[in-house]
Design a protein around this nucleic acid. Structure first.
Length: 589
RNA sequence: GACCCCAUAGCUCAGCUGGAUAGAGCAACUGCCUUCUAAGCAGUAGGUCGUUGGUUCGAGUCCAACUGGGGUCGCCA
């Protein structure tokens, strides 16, 4: 039982003894910084049954708790707020039990299987900053679910077919002169992306000349020859034209090689890949099943629909009149497929908020079809990353390219490190490793500290910070501890006797105590930002302690050992928190 | 037009699901390195929590309307 539970129980008993039946669940809060105590109980809701003023009510309860003696050692009352001070013993026990614990706050596998689908790129262009947000969120939420005791399967559903893929292919055929990643020295995904942009340019030029020839714009957009060519290419691709398929395989191969490189550098990975070229036929049999069950209905033209007006939504097409699938048909089929293969009780889709409606519909459909896993489906909907100029558009080349940004972060980290000049004697490979980790930490933290559902602004003119509430700040705190522990010998790794804590020590221990709860909340809300903010709080608390009290120079050996144990405990916990964010530590910086 | 998100310091963000005097970081200003890593610490200044009502002991938080920003309403994915 943790402290909150113990306190709640005691308060509940006190209320029952004083006033009879307690009608409301006890809710504890953390005491504000300006007041004495660690936990606060608000008594206003009790006034009706206590029939006394707030002060007296709070005092009566406080008195009862104090008499219990454990864990409350003092209380004070301000208006209707009962502030409780917890025994130093609690923090002492916490430290004794966990200063060496490298898995503090991480649960064992007890919670069932979860699938996290994220990344889901198109194979016609390289990854950009929007994809980075998706990948970092997906990876982090997978780690967080794992820390919450779940077994996690990471999946990537690759969008490798469709008209947009044909655009890159056609442009390459028309303008490419046989160019390959090898011949051009370009990364495969960038090469293919180049032709996606080239297509758009050619397409717009054709539209312009058609409009100049007297066609109206809408007409021109539909009848541009290059567009008709891509549509023909798609038909041939689907008909199995071996030449087209070969081209598709070749160009997709280039893209995958490029993606692998970027994924690796970002530090994300997957247990399972799905390809839309394989899954796009799935779901048709389920549509038939739904027709039989009366979940769907067929129109005269043969198309199949679902009526969601009772749920406040609209009618939605699930199968075209020619019997071919649409986007949601595939997702229906893939959901079943995933469950058949992995039996995950929860399935998290990390997809941008522009698809909120789509997933609302999808989950409703699976529910109406009676799928047991439907209640466990969750759309982790995140906001777009905007530039000061507005939305990023690959076609128009107004994107922050993922590879460019990663490179830039590395360079900035390098410049910053050299400026500070604290890395004397480090090998070149070691240094490069350090720059890379620092750059990634800055980038990942920058993105993950923001609530996923909020859209965020990225200004390429201003580089991402390395000071203040940042990844490097957390790494710095860790490196500082490591440096200290390296000089500390081993005699502190022993049993310390109970001591009276200084305020900054107590604050750090309190903060450490909160890590399991932070993990729990992050898990509950599917929100890595909770972990990011936690790690900042812990790092700040420790740095305050570091500046206020001595560690290595403390002459009282018992205090010295206790403090170094706090340092070790903090380092372990920072490392665990960072792991949940996909950030790896540095021993020196 | 309908529906869904968002709005807190000059900027970027917190605010633990209704509690005390709304908090951090950046930018600005002031201190602290002959002492365990100054990518740090302490401090000053900066706010009508978009607006107006409502709910109650209490509202940044819940409800309604409005304003502004974004998104979705394809037999595209």
């Amino acid at each position: 039982m943790n402290i909150e539970q113990e306190l709640s129980l005691q308060i509940d008993q006190a209320i029952t003894e004083l006033y009879g039946e307690n009608p409301v669940a006890v809710k504890l809060e953390k005491t504000n910084k300006d007041f004495e105590g660690q936990y606060t109980f608000v008594v206003f809701p009790l006034l009706r049954i206590s029939k006394k003023n707030p002060q007296d009510t709070a005092a009566e309860i406080g008195e009862k708790l104090l008499k219990n003696g454990n864990p409350v050692v003092a209380y004070n009352v301000i208006k209707g707020f009962l502030n409780l001070s917890i025994s130093d013993r609690v923090w002492y026990d916490l430290l004794q039990q966990n200063w060496y614990n490298t898995t503090f706050g991480l649960k064992n596998k007890t919670e069932g299987r979860v699938m996290v689908e994220y990344s889901s790129p198109n194979t016609n262009k390289p990854l950009h900053l929007g994809h980075i947000r998706n990948n970092l969120l997906g990876y982090s939420i997978a780690e967080i679910m794992r820390a919450g005791g779940h077994e996690v399967i990471k999946a990537n559903l690759i969008n490798d077919r469709g008209i947009h893929i044909c655009k890159s292919m056609l442009a390459w055929q028309l303008f490419g002169n046989g160019e390959t990643p090898e011949s051009s020295g370009m990364k495969g995904d960038h090469l293919v992306g180049k032709y996606y942009v080239a297509f758009d340019k050619a397409y717009k030029a054709e539209i312009d000349s058609l409009v100049a020839g007297g066609l109206d714009k809408e007409e021109a957009e539909k009848s541009a020859p290059i567009l008709l060519q891509t549509q023909e290419m798609l038909r041939q691709w689907e008909a199995g034209n071996p030449e087209i398929i070969k081209l598709w395989e070749t160009m997709n191969g280039w893209v995958y090689k490029g993606f692998d490189h970027t994924y690796k550098r970002l530090g994300v990975d997957f247990d399972k890949y799905y390809y839309e070229s394989n899954t796009y036929t799935l779901g048709k049999d389920i549509v038939a099943e739904g027709l039989e069950k009366g979940v769907f209905y067929r129109k005269e033209d043969g198309s199949v629909w679902i009526d969601l007006t009772a749920e406040g939504l609209d009618h939605k097409l699930v199968l075209r009149k020619d019997g071919t699938s649409v986007y949601i048909t595939q997702d229906i089929g893939t959901a079943d497929e995933k469950f058949r293969e992995f039996g995950a009780e929860k399935s998290i889709y990390v997809v941008g908020n522009e698809q909120d409606y789509h997933f609302k519909v999808l989950f409703l459909i699976m529910q109406k079809l009676g799928r047991s896993y439907a209640p466990g489906m969750y759309h982790l909907s995140y906001g777009m990353v905007d530039l000061p100029s507005g939305k990023m558009k690959s076609r128009e080349g107004t994107v922050v390219d993922a590879d460019d940004l990663l490179k830039e972060m590395h360079e900035t980290a390098k410049a910053k490190t050299l400026e500070l000049g604290k890395t004397e004697g480090m090998e070149v490979s070691e240094l490069n490793n350090l720059y890379e980790k620092l750059g990634l930490a800055a980038l990942k933290f920058f993105i993950l500290k923001v609530d996923p559902k909020k859209r965020m602004l990225f200004n390429p003119q201003e580089s991402i910070d390395f000071q203040g509430d940042t990844g490097p700040f957390v790494l710095y705190t860790y490196a500082r501890i490591q440096s200290m522990l390296k000089q500390a010998g081993t005699d502190w790794q022993t049993h310390v006797s109970e001591i009276e804590w200084q305020p900054s020590e107590k604050e750090t221990l309190e903060c450490l105590y909160g890590f399991p709860e932070a993990v729990h909340n992050a898990c509950r809300d599917f929100n890595p930002a909770i972990i990011a903010h936690y790690s900042l709080e812990l790092a700040k608390a420790f740095n305050r302690l570091y500046n206020e009290l001595s560690f290595l120079k403390e002459t009282d050996t018992n205090k010295r050992a206790a403090r170094l144990q706090i340092a070790s405990f903090t380092a372990n916990t920072l490392e665990n928190a960072c792991r949940l964010l996909g950030i790896s530590m540095v021993e020196r910086m």
